[in-house]
Amino acid sequence: MSNAVSALQGKSAVGFATVTEAGLQGMITLRGDLKSAKLKKAVKSAAGVDVPAARRITLKSGRGAGWMSPDELLILVPYAEARATVEALSKALADDHHLVADVSDARAMFRIKGDKADQVLAKLCPVDLKTLADGELRRTRAAQVAAALWQSDKGEFTLVSFRSVADYVFGALELSARSGSELSAS
């Protein structure tokens, strides 16, 4: 565990927005019946939040859950707690049909910060960022690869991709954030 390093180890680039690889993040895939009381309880206990509505993500002090599909959630916890959380979820759901998998190391996470952070993403993702709701988790693509994104703060977006393409995603974000290529003044 002490050997663990993220894909780009915090690499960062500054343009009209700042792009940073966000380091290690605990992520767990949970598949099951999202309506079951037992699952709701397990999620609350593991992630500290309720099961999110369709296409929503709920985050509270570094933990949370995102809706990925009608039977899949993405549980977010600190990296060091991922294994224990997997075990806790597995135990809680042992009697029900479900699947829990640690995917913390399968992903790379990026933060895009700045007043015009949305303009960086608007060049790579076919998403209407102006109408992206608060707490909306959007599964989409970033240029040629799969991605998921949400607005994680005012003037900040978080984007998740697969780990193997971290270099590619960072390259595309860095290029799109270069000064002088703003889409508009605001």
Partner: peptide
């Protein structure tokens, strides 16, 4: 072609 040239012409998957 858009942004797809040089290093980001195509996604290149890399192992750890």
């Amino acid at each position: 072609a858009g942004e797809a040239r040089g290093d980001i012409f195509q996604p290149l998957r890399k192992t750890p």
